[in-house]
Amino acid sequence: MFVRRGDLAPGRDRSSRFLPWIIALMVYLAGLALSATMALEQVIDRWSAGLKGSITIVVDPSVNGGEAETDARVEAALSVILTTQSVLSATPLAKIDVAGLVEPWLGKDVLSLDLPIPRLIDVTLVPDSGFDLAGLTRRLDSAVPGTQIDDHKVWLQKILRLARTSELIAILIVVLIALAAGATVMFATRTGLAVQRDVIEVLHLIGARDTYIARQFQGNAVSLALWGGLLGLLFTGVTVLALWLLARDLGSSLLPAVRLSLPFLGALAMLPLVGAIIASVTARFTVMRFLARML
C-alpha cells in the first residue's frame, strides 16, 4: 500500500520514451562543441603566451660577403639587441634549425644548395616592461641595415580572431542545441498532454490547479532529461578521454597537450543539469499554455 507522488499515466505516450535518447544526443553534441572550444582556447592561449613575450629578428644574408659577412651581421645585431633595455635574452638560431623551418618548402638538402638563407635571432623580453620596439628598429637599421623585426602582431591578431570566431560558433552551436532540446521537450509534452487529456480533465474537476498538473509534467520531463543528459555526458566523457589520449600520444610540438582542467570538467558536468532546467522550463511553459485554453 502506498500513495503515489505522480498522477499521470507513465508510459502512456510513446514519444516520451525517445526523449532521453534525444537529450542524450544533444548533450553529447553540446559536450563535443564545448570540448572543442576549450581545447582550441588552450592551444591558442599557449601559442599566444609563447609569442607575446618574444620578438624575432630577421638578419638578411650577405649576398657578396659570404657566410663570414653574414655571421658578422648577426654578431652586430646581437650586440645592439643585448644592450637594449627590457631584453632578457637573445639567441641566434643555428643554420640547421633555420634550414629545418624552410624544409617543407625547399626540401631537406637546403644547406647543400648554398642558398642565402636569412638568420633568425629569437629575442625574449622582460614581461610587461614597456619594451621600445621603435627604438630598437632605429638602432638596428643604422647598425645592421636590412634587418627586420617581427613582433608577431599580425599572427597574434589572426590567432585571436580565429579564437573569437570559433568561440562564437561554439556558442551558436550550443544555443541551437538548447533550442532544439527545448523544441523536442515541447513536442513530447504536447503529445503527453494530448494523450493524457482525460487524466488532466479529471484532475481539474477534482480541483487541481494548473501549477499542480504542470509540476507533474515538469517532474516527468526533468527525470527523462536527467537520464538522457547523464547518458550523453557519459558518451562525451568517453569521446573526450579517447581524443585526449590520442593527442597526448601524438606528442607534437605543433599541437600542445590539452589539459583536462577543473572548470572544463565542471562545465561538462553541468550539461545534464542545464538540459534538465531547459526541460523543466519548457514543460511548464507548454503545459500552462495548454491548460489556459481549458476551463
Partner: peptide
C-alpha cells in the same frame, strides 16, 4: 472517471493529495 493507472487507494486519495493533505492523513 477513475484513473486506470492508479490503485484504488490512489484514486480515492486524489482529492486529498490535490488539496495538499499529509501522506499519513491520506493513508
Amino acid at each position: 472517471q477513475l484513473l486506470d493507472h492508479l490503485s484504488t487507494l490512489d484514486n480515492v486519495a486524489l482529492p486529498l493529495r490535490i488539496a495538499g493533505a499529509r501522506r499519513e492523513t491520506i493513508q
